[in-house]
Design a protein around this nucleic acid. Structure first.
Lengths: 210, 210, 210, 210
DNA sequence: GATGAATGAGACTTCATTCAT
DNA sequence: AATGAATGAAGTCTCATTCAT
């Protein structure tokens, strides 16, 4: 019956298992980020997570599964932060900015994940991470498209704009990370705004003139 | 005297060796690009290059050496194309555009290298490719900085501008590559011009008015 | 606390590991002795020791390490036997004889090691075994020198005498080993005594007469 | 017809082939002696002999064949020198001494061969060299046996005496070689005489007295 | 259920031998 | 006949995964 352990319908064993998965993923993100997926061994992950190799396999089907779960966790958290940071009713450009702020905070707290996010081999795991990155770009694309529809941004191919936008952010973060200047991460939304968004804003006053 | 084979002072053996190295690098760029460095075995490279494993080792000291030579070759060619495409006396923004055109042509002809360029693990070979990418960004940075000095571009931190610029290009190329729409590669210089450079151009007349 | 397994402060795991190393060394001494170090593969050692190749590497760092450990073990045991067989206070010639008896018993029990001892390539492992053999000769030399100092042996170059002495023993052992007549090993000390030592004994009484 | 080339029934081609074999064996004895048989590659032998790898195979069936021929050559030469140095009619102990002098001269001129002679793995090539060494011992044995028959030496097992005798010589030579004191090689016959032979000489006068 | 020792497939590399030139 | 580039079998070692304890 596992009586008293049922909290939210989750048994004690299940909670223990989840805690264990978290420990493993924390160890893995650090090692994968710093040394790469291939150069990290299961033994290293187990050591860093302070558990046995066998435990790893009782929590995950294998090394790839850890990688997959790691992406899901960190990407999911980034998305959730983004969702929480903006209201669906807000203007799309505000939403975009809020999402960027949220994503950057996330990267700031998980610098190792930034490395995985940007560098891991594209074909690994059939491109899981590439799909995630593409997903991020599409989120930006749809917000930018809505801004155009609402007349807040000049019209252009939103997929192109989003690619430049997202690519710009990534390389900026890497520039700052390389310089060990994580503090600058917070300037990124402002920079992107001035550099890309502002020049594209439709200006009612000017347009009226025309 | 190595008989009649001396062409450019290169013996037949040497030419054969170079041809062989090219075959290997062509096989390797394809496999490294699609499956990653670590997941590609020497046997696979040998099979793809239609030669024995031993031959690989008579042309290169080992797997890492192949990777290093591959980077040197493709990076070197890209740089050379960029150098050839612009004159030192040209205005910096023209030079920048010419270099981008050259780089994009290069990527268009070597799509597998685009994958290596953007995705290979950062820790591999002590970050050789990372230094190359950084080198490209710095080339852009110095051209942008000179444009600012000459009053052709509004002043801002050139390293930030170059990061956004270069990152934007990369993600655009990836977007088009993902869509199997390599034809669009040629639009990239124009897109970057309109989206980033044009809005930043200093307009003396307008600025005086303000 | 490692529970009840702590015997002599050695955990069960450690004991198991040592047992495993012994198994490997037993397999290795046999194969190295019969087929030589170079012609013996790790797979062969693993098969003979009835374990996997991986196990070999969990007990020893590599093939050379097995060889080194093998020498240490068998040489060490031979030295220990020699030390145990004689008292430092005994006359040097008695000590020498006791040491020879001990060494011969050791070789008799480990015929494969006799082969390694006498034949392995001199350049292997920077001549480890050569130094050991030289060490044995020097032990004999110092005992013979002391016997001379005490007037028990006629004076001559002790290093030359020890070389002939030790070389004679080796080839005798090989002769008997070739003839599959290991029983004769036990005659060796007596033979060496009569053939080399006895004629060299200083006889004060007789010499005075002359 | 290979007309004029027939000298002793040997064609020019055949003479060239022999010259080539000599070059190879000279290179091989040096390399095998210094680095060991296994660690010496065919390429190294070819380079040292200043010829192509293919040539090696046109003169010898393979690496083992070179080793075999090398032993045959150097052992054969040693035997021939020994034969030439003594007359069958001479007293056996004189013959023995002459043979030792000859063998030592041979080793002195071919120090690399001394290494091969003493150290190469016993099981290599099914013990070719071991049989040669055994052959040397047997030559000594038969001479010592004849000396006993002629009453020139006290009776004892001649195989045992020859083993000690030959083993003593070997280790003496190694001692001097290790000390880079090749000049001492010439003392060896005298040393062996005084140390082993002289004490064993039957003394008719003294024996009559008893 | 947890452990971590054991497994063994597979990676990189070497080199004796072959064979096209 | 000579060359030396090419071959590929075989060696050492690693590590993801399994399984007896």
């Amino acid at each position: 019956m596992q009586s008293e352990s049922a909290e939210n319908g989750v048994s004690r064993r299940e909670r223990e298992r989840r805690r264990c998965r978290e420990l493993i993923l924390s160890a893995a993100v650090e090692l994968f980020g710093r040394r790469g997926y291939q150069k990290t061994s299961m033994k290293e992950i187990a050591d860093r997570a302070d558990m046995s190799v066998g435990k790893l396999y009782s929590c995950f089907a294998g090394k790839e599964e850890i990688y997959r779960a790691l992406l899901e966790k960190y990407m999911g958290e980034m998305h959730r932060r983004g969702d929480a940071a903006c209201l669906p009713g807000d203007p799309p450009l505000d939403q975009l900015r809020c999402r960027i702020v949220a994503a950057i905070e996330h990267f700031k707290e998980h610098l190792d994940f930034l490395m995985i996010y940007h560098n891991e081999s594209p074909m690994l795991l059939e491109g899981t991470i590439r799909r995630e990155i593409e997903h991020n770009r599409q989120t930006a694309e749809s917000l930018l498209a809505r801004a155009m529809e609402r007349g807040e941004l000049r019209r252009m191919d939103p997929s192109i704009l989003s690619a430049v936008f997202v690519g710009g952010i990534h390389d900026l973060l890497h520039l700052f990370a390389d310089r060990r200047d994580v503090g600058k991460f917070e300037d990124v939304p402002e920079i992107m705004d001035r550099l890309i968004i502002e020049p594209l804003r439709a200006r009612p006053a000017l347009e009226r003139k025309e």
